[in-house]
Computed example of a mutant assay.
Amino acid sequence: MLRQYLETQADQVEAVLLAHHAPGRVTGGTVGPRLIRFALDPAPSTRFTAVRGLAEDLAVALKVSSLRIDRTDQGIILEFPNPEPRPVTFTGLWPEVEPLPPATALLGLTDAGAPLLARLSSPEVAHVLVAGTTGSGKTALLRTMATSLALANAPETLRLLCLDPKGRAFRALTAAPHLTRPPVVEIAEAIEALQSLVRLMEMRDQKGEQQPRIVVFIDEMADLIIQDERRNGHVSVETLLTRLAQRGREAGIHLIAATQRPSAAVLSGVLRANFPLRLVGKVVSAEDARLASGRAQTDAHLLNGRGDFIAVGGSALPIRFQVAYLGEREAQEELAALKTKSTN
């Protein structure tokens, strides 16, 4: 059944290209849990821009909700949703990746079927900006990353600080023995916690210390900054976050912050520039995709939502992946069991 579907879709792609005088052949591809990728071999006379310009026509012909066209070292790649998606779960993927290296978070599964990890101690990662609209899967991604860090690292080597202005994102983590304090909801406590971290960073700088590593998870970073501005405090949340982003890695302090839209009106360019790794879910427009990823033509506005993300970092090509989903109750059970072990 799937084979017949793939052959029919490949024929449709070739027919559309031929009808628009941009001939090419589908030479192969892969079937991932959420995505199908076709490798396209264009005729010598067919330009990439011509193929890319036919994205909407191809999506209509294939009867899919979205279609991305990209140029890689393998040639031209067409990506569209798998009509029979398979779930990617944390519990299913975790046995394949443990034990993880120190300070390394599990993200999910790439469209090539490989687990995707983020090693915070690497200069190419250090701090992570997570962006996407409501329903994109930001909170689920934060929960997966935090739980994997807690399961793979002892509290003596890694600590977690969670800032949660809406009070919903990190409820599952309350049982984790790695927490420096319960998830912070109030803006005054968030400022105090960030001030304490800056002082710790400066002290560690002087002593050349990095341990234990401290990972700061922030849900709705823009909301936290806006609350601070309304409060008219003497110390700016954005100023504190910028200092931590600029100098935190050498002191073993890492930021993992989520926001719906990292616009210049809320987040300064200096702060955004200090997040080397961007994890971008579905956004509203191509301009939002550029702001979130820090580069043009990532097509993040064409993602499917519900955990469909791209990882963008350095000069490497974006990596599309599906978040390894972990429900709130499942996370609570995993971390409660971990807490029981640590107290025995």
Rank of each mutant, 00 (worst) to 15 (best):
P99T: 08
F80G: 02
A105K: 08
P83K: 00
E96Q: 13
T91M: 13
T104P: 01
N82W: 00
P101R: 14
L109M: 15
P81S: 11
W94N: 02
G92L: 09
V97C: 05
N82M: 02
L100H: 02
G108E: 10
P83I: 00
V97Q: 02
T104V: 08
T89R: 08
T91N: 15
F90M: 07
L100K: 04
A112D: 15
E96K: 04
V97P: 05
L107M: 13
P102I: 12
W94H: 05
F90G: 09
P99S: 07
E98F: 00
N82Y: 07
E96R: 05
T89L: 14
G113K: 12
D111N: 10
G113H: 13
G108V: 11
V97R: 01
P87F: 13
F90R: 06
L106N: 10
R86F: 13
R86D: 11
A112N: 12
A105W: 03
P95R: 03
G113V: 10
T104G: 04
D111H: 12
G113C: 08
G108K: 01
L100V: 14
G92P: 03
T104M: 07
G92W: 05
L100F: 02
L107Y: 05
P85H: 03
L109W: 09
G113S: 11
L93Y: 05
G92E: 13
L107Q: 09
N82L: 02
V88I: 12
T89Q: 04
P83T: 00
L93R: 03
A103M: 09
E84F: 05
R86W: 12
L93A: 06
F80K: 03
E98D: 07
F90W: 09
T89D: 07
A112V: 09
P87R: 05
L93M: 05
L107A: 11
P99K: 03
F80D: 00
L107F: 05
P81D: 10
F80E: 00
G92D: 15
A103H: 14
